[in-house]
């Protein structure tokens, strides 16, 4: 229904409207997109936790405290010394969760950057050139997407050997399928716009058209997807670590903490809860931010 569509073409504004005070604008935007800001808040806290882990952690994350375990070897619960309790080796869970944020963010962000570069490259080239180039690249993408990322990454890490950098690399080079598909779709849509044809008519090279004209016009969906991607990659890292082929103990990662917690949760449930909760909140944060950005970048939600 086109009832609300205006026929009014935008005329150049005679003068910019007086700028509203920044704080007022900020709170209005918070009211309009509360989930976006909740997501952003979570991520900011997460980054602070990761960066400040050495400062704010009450203990060294790998120190095994003898008073972290009861005499019968059961981890002690939350207390003044161990705010979130201790784990099966008597280590402080709060400190380990904080340090675990470093691993999660590092893997999540860097692997996403790799996804981004590969996905954008493949998607742009495939969408722009079409024909057999598109066919070949998209079949490769189909294959990548045919296997669950976790399974695929497991296989690659099994070959390379488990380490932080190998995990990061595996997720990075295998997780770009969705990005490539989305980018290709966007490129297909944008390349039909006349301003892209105009650029060709001016005599511009393909590289220039792809990266200077088309790419800036699809940046919105790419940002949204990348944000969601970070959350997803954090989960995959946790999965790998949980299965014992990711981050190796004693380095704390939420995945290997959950795995350790699985062994003790019946007698000491906090060993499972807190790393699990950290993981859920972190992933939720990225998803909220991604969805919120999608709303904001959707032209139907912005009034111009």
């Amino acid at each position: 229904m086109a009832a609300m569509q205006f026929e009014t073409p935008p005329a150049p504004a005679a003068a910019a409207p007086p700028a509203k005070p920044f704080t007022k604008k900020f709170w209005k935007s918070v009211r309009d997109f509360p989930m976006l800001y909740l997501g952003a808040l979570i991520i900011v806290l997460l980054i602070l936790a990761a960066v400040l882990a050495p400062v704010i952690s009450p203990h060294n994350p790998t120190t095994q405290f003898s008073d972290g375990l009861t005499e019968s070897g059961i981890p002690v619960g939350p207390s003044a010394k161990f705010p979130l309790g201790a784990d099966n080796l008597g280590r402080d869970i709060l400190s380990r969760v904080l340090y675990g944020a470093q691993v999660s963010l590092l893997v999540g962000v860097i692997s996403t950057v790799i996804n981004l570069v590969l996905g954008v490259l493949v998607g742009t080239v495939a969408g722009y050139f079409g024909g057999w180039v598109d066919n070949v690249l998209m079949r490769v993408t189909d294959i990548i997407l045919a296997f669950p990322l976790l399974l695929f990454a497991m296989a690659l890490v099994a070959v390379l050997g488990p380490s932080l950098w190998n995990v990061l690399f595996a997720i990075g080079v295998l997780g770009w399928g969705t990005m490539a598909r989305v980018v290709r779709g966007q490129v297909l849509a944008v390349k039909e716009f006349e301003y892209v044809q105009a650029e060709r008519a001016l005599g511009a090279s393909n590289t220039r058209i792809m990266f200077r004209v088309i790419l800036p016009n699809i940046i919105g969906p790419v940002i949204v997807l990348s944000t969601l991607n970070v959350g997803q990659n954090i989960l995959v890292e946790a999965g790998l670590s949980f299965l014992g082929i990711g981050i190796q103990p004693p380095t704390p990662s939420w995945g290997n903490m959950i795995e350790a917690g699985m062994q003790t949760y019946q007698v000491a449930p906090w060993t499972l809860w807190f790393p699990g909760l950290a993981l859920v909140i972190a992933v939720l944060g990225f998803n909220l931010l991604g969805d919120g950005l999608r709303d904001i970048l959707d032209p139907r939600n912005t009034q111009h």
Partner: peptide, 21 residues
């Protein structure tokens, strides 16, 4: 011409305009 309100007028006769109007 575009934006003169002719379509809006016609939609209002059919009561097809959506709020906030």
């Amino acid at each position: 011409e575009s934006g003169c309100g002719k379509s809006v007028t016609s939609l209002s006769i059919m009561r097809l305009l959506q709020p906030p109007t």
